[in-house]
Design a protein around this nucleic acid. Structure first.
Lengths: 181, 181
DNA sequence: TTTCTATGAATGAATG
DNA sequence: CATTCATTCATAGAAA
């Protein structure tokens, strides 16, 4: 539910068969990477790149646009997801080894393992090779506005907050703003 | 789907509308905003509020607690994230558009490299409506960020991006890493 | 068809 | 304010 969605490409909710997009239109579809794009991205990942900087993302996106439509955010999400899921899998495996009692027919793990076996990912921790120099981490020292501190301890949840805005809180008061004066 | 369903709260009312109530008592780990809450927050953001003060956060949180469980820190984080992602998105879109321009020579292979909708309606200028006066927006300074210069320096590429079009862009370099230097 | 899986996209919650 | 992690939603494509 983000802003840049095309006006009416709504996803109603849970597995909504009602389908806003219709599907056949393919207009609001999500990015469908080509095999070449995936190949390059995977290669970069395997080379050690995990979280490319904004600059890197832009360059990668530019390069990959040769193979088909792509946007920067796609690259961003791809790395984000890829890293997260690799870690997720690893963690699940660990847990699985911990409780080796309850995986009778673990089809999920099998298929996932099969898929990731060919790329040789699971057993490669932080393989930062010579391309490391290409990823300058931008260091910036900046403020420490720990304003959040005030809210972390804040646990006052006045469920019975009585605000007399219009004398009726029955339904959503769209004029909530008025009470902020 | 039965492996990690340890029993988390089920998404109740993100896009469903109404509903809101009911299972608000779930022991969800993280805040799951109601559609009404999101609506109000978005409206506030749209009205120009970007970095609410502590006081404003408290009030907003109190008001929104009517629609469901919420804490001050949720409001704080919401604005933080919304602003950050808005900016991040805008940056990406700008660059993508720039890339699109410099990929005109790709019209040979890339078949359907049309404009993606991506109708960023985010461009809501000074939409400070009448409700602005109702807000003591003491912290409305979008400027003064010297750190922001980090990206102005990046804009240099946009202007004089002399890509080696005629030379070696016939087919993408398979060893992409080297081209990112 | 329906079901399941892989994965793109989104966002709450941090951290620096 | 920028960046990152964790979790979840949503959906295209493969199985069944």
């Amino acid at each position: 539910m983000d802003e840049y969605s095309a006006g009416f490409c709504i996803r109603a909710s849970r597995a909504g068969g009602g389908g806003g997009g219709g599907g056949t239109g393919t207009k609001c579809g999500r990015w469908n990477p080509t095999s070449e794009q995936v190949k390059v991205l995977t290669e970069l990942f395997r080379s050690g790149l995990r979280t490319p900087s904004t600059d890197q993302i832009q360059k990668i996106s530019s390069q990959l646009s040769f193979y088909g439509k792509i946007e920067s955010k796609n690259v961003f999400y791809w790395f984000q997801n890829h890293k997260a899921r690799e870690r997720q899998k690893r963690r699940r495996v660990l847990v699985d080894e911990g409780n080796e009692i309850m995986h009778i027919h673990d089809t999920t793990k099998v298929s996932a393992t099969k898929h990731y076996m060919e790329t040789n990912q699971v057993s490669e921790p932080e393989r930062v090779i010579e391309t490391l120099q290409l990823f300058p981490l931008n260091s910036f020292t900046e403020s420490g506005s720990e304003k959040l501190r005030q809210f972390t301890n804040d646990c006052k949840e006045n469920a019975s907050f009585t605000y007399n805005i219009g004398t009726e809180m029955d339904h959503p008061t769209l004029d909530l703003r008025l009470s902020f004066v």
